[in-house]
Design a protein around this nucleic acid. Structure first.
Length: 428
RNA sequence: GGAGAGGUGGCCGAGUGGCCGAAGGCGCUCCCCUGCUAAGGGAGUAACGAGUUUAUAGCUUGUUCGAGGGUUCGAAUCCCUCCUUCUCCGCCA
């Protein structure tokens, strides 16, 4: 959620920045609602103040043994007025909040301005694309031929966009996740976390999946007026980032760096027809997530760092990739700035997203009430939160299968993973 | 799943209808005292929102005692629902 002060004091500038990401802020509507809010709030609060002081008087009169019946009657009338004002104010405040919830974060000035993914800017490329002197197969053909990817069984058991993995491929998938976790905990300073995969609505509001993106979630109960029950996490970002909810950290505790390997569940509503083949877009996939809570002045520094941590996985796996900074029009709802890492996928002859690292600024922290107490100061301030995939495990498996394929259909195992595979050098 | 007892400020803990936003303690900050240290004395110390303001200063004001409803002129205190913690029993990887 944006700082409401932006909407009150600097709405034109805010609208301009939001326009960069293709969001049209209804300035006139907000201005008129705000104006109403202000007068209504003043009115309501002064009625409340009046009631409070009268009630106090009644209490004192009662103590003196005076007759309080007439006073009570008078105040009862005031109460009716107050109830009406309160009701009106609550409705208006709810309307304003509903709008506020749908406003995305302001892009940072260093994010390039653009409409959509075509205007993302490549920052760097790494690694050499292997030249294959045979026709490359995609991971589906490779995996099925090796008996390790079983799409048919997954359809039978659950439906499309699920996968059954088997044998060495299942093990390779596990090895990838283990390797990533070990790298981040042993070398990048993250603390490993085991977290719930089912979360409550408060958590989803905290990380801004709700109220706007509820359709992307799998819920344990259909949404009703009573609530939605619990939801399967779309990313470990949700439980990890919610660790900070309603916490006031000591400044010395920052930065906090945590990581977790979890399955992620996404309904992928609205993406029918895209990436229907293979493991690229699944309802369930594994991911190793990196989350940092940092001092507000350090968050852009931290974004570079967290991105580097994700890049290190690709480098160590010797997978060619490129780093892209998302333009304002392609950034996620809560991000101020995002780097995507895209891995080379030989069969598609293109780079595909495998990690997304974002500085969220105080956007989530405001909803989470995630704060720290600056040394020597009384007032707590909002922290900044960051998250990054380090990496999406399923897509990394795709990249390994395709980039490490041999002409005979076998897969070479990247050096750093061989240890995790019991010394195995090839699959197949 | 059953029975019982709880949830109060950074922490502990008192408070069963009216100067209670909340005694007391711990912690923390500042000051005094003590030639260091330990101890002692004094003062201060919740969050969030609105208005005013150059101001995250001050002032005025509202809300918040697990959450949400209700009763009342007035609720930490009474009633209802939910969440959650602990103890005992049951079940269980």
């Amino acid at each position: 959620m944006l700082d409401p002060k932006f909407l009150r004091n600097d709405i034109e500038k805010t609208a301009e920045l939001l326009a960069n990401r293709g969001f049209k802020l209804d300035v006139d509507l907000i201005n008129s609602l705000e104006e109403k809010r202000k007068s209504l709030q003043i009115q309501t609060e002064s009625l409340q103040a009046e009631r409070n002081s009268r009630s106090k008087e009644i209490g004192m009169a009662a103590k003196r043994g005076e007759d309080i019946a007439p006073l009570r009657e008078q105040t009862a009338e005031l109460g009716a007025q107050l109830d009406a004002a309160k009701e009106e104010f609550t409705a208006l405040a709810a309307q304003i909040q509903e709008i506020a919830y749908t406003i995305p974060n302001l892009p940072h000035e260093s994010a390039p301005i653009g409409k959509d993914e075509d205007e993302n800017v490549e920052i760097s490329t790494w690694g050499t694309k292997k030249s294959f002197d045979f026709e490359v197969k995609d991971h589906v053909d490779l995996g099925e031929a090796l008996g390790g990817l079983d799409f048919k069984s997954a359809v039978k058991i659950s439906g499309s966009r699920f996968i059954v993995m088997q044998g060495q491929i299942a093990k390779l998938h596990r090895a990838l996740a283990q390797y990533m976790l070990n790298l981040h905990t042993n070398h990048h300073g993250y603390t490993e976390m085991y977290v719930p995969l089912l979360v409550n609505a408060d958590s989803l509001y905290g990380t801004t999946q709700l109220p706007k993106f509820g359709d992307d979630l799998f819920n344990t109960k259909p949404a009703t007026e009573e609530g939605v029950g619990m939801s399967l996490i779309p990313s470990a970002e949700v439980p990890l980032t919610n660790m900070s909810r309603d916490v006031i950290y000591d400044e010395a505790d920052l930065p906090i760096k945590i990581t977790s390997h979890t399955p992620c569940f996404r309904s992928e509503a609205g993406s029918y027809g895209r990436d229907t083949r293979g493991l690229i877009r699944q309802h369930q996939f594994d991911k190793v997530e990196l989350v940092q809570f940092v001092h507000p002045e350090k968050s852009f520094e931290a974004l570079e760092e967290i991105t580097m941590h994700a890049e290190q996985v690709l480098k160590n796996l010797e997978l060619p990739y490129r780093k892209v900074v998302l333009c304002t029009g392609d950034m996620g709802f809560s991000a101020t700035k995002t780097y995507d890492l895209e891995v080379w996928v030989p069969a598609q002859e293109t780079y595909r997203e495998i990690s997304s690292c974002s500085n969220v600024g105080d956007f989530q922290a405001r909803r989470l009430q995630a704060r720290f107490r600056p040394a020597g100061k009384k007032k707590p301030e909002l922290i900044h939160t960051l998250n990054g995939s380090g990496l999406a495990v399923g897509r990394t498996l795709v990249a390994v299968l395709e980039n490490y394929q041999l002409e005979d259909g076998r897969i070479e195992i990247p050096t750093v993973l061989q240890h995790y595979m019991g010394g195995l050098t090839h699959i197949g």
